[in-house]
Amino acid sequence: MNLAIFSLLKKTSYLFVALGVTFLMFDLAYYVMTTLPGSRNEMCVIGAGFTTLNIVFSVVMSFLSALLTVGILEVGMSKRSVSTSGLGVLLGSLTVFCTACTLPVISLFGFSLSLLFFTTYADILKVVSMVLIFIALYIVNGQVQNKCNICVN
């Protein structure tokens, strides 16, 4: 599979967007990890989720989320169906897919993010969120390459 979505990072603007989104997502994940109550080693602790595995998972998910964001922006910009304002680009880019792709991308993206933040970081939920975001990336990658078999371009 041609991972065109990775090649988007060669564009300077997308690289900066990806950097910003990665940091933003990781900051949110860090805050959740260090402030959510939980248990560890048979005791109640604040920040029980702040473990090495969760940190690594958050870094990976933050990067993948950034990649997905960049992919959605690219598809939105290339369709030329959005306004030139920043927020307009972001919001408009979410509408450029046909329903067949918009719903799964947004829902998969949303589910992945919600699983990142609002779970006890159980291993199975980590796996599910990773699978969901990879599916969303696959769909967006297809859009970037204009290889969607459903949409008529």
Partner: peptide
Amino acid sequence: DQGLIAAIIFASVVVSAS
């Protein structure tokens, strides 16, 4: 250029805040 500037500003703000 506007897009690039916006992206740089966005990344700078987020990274600085982090």
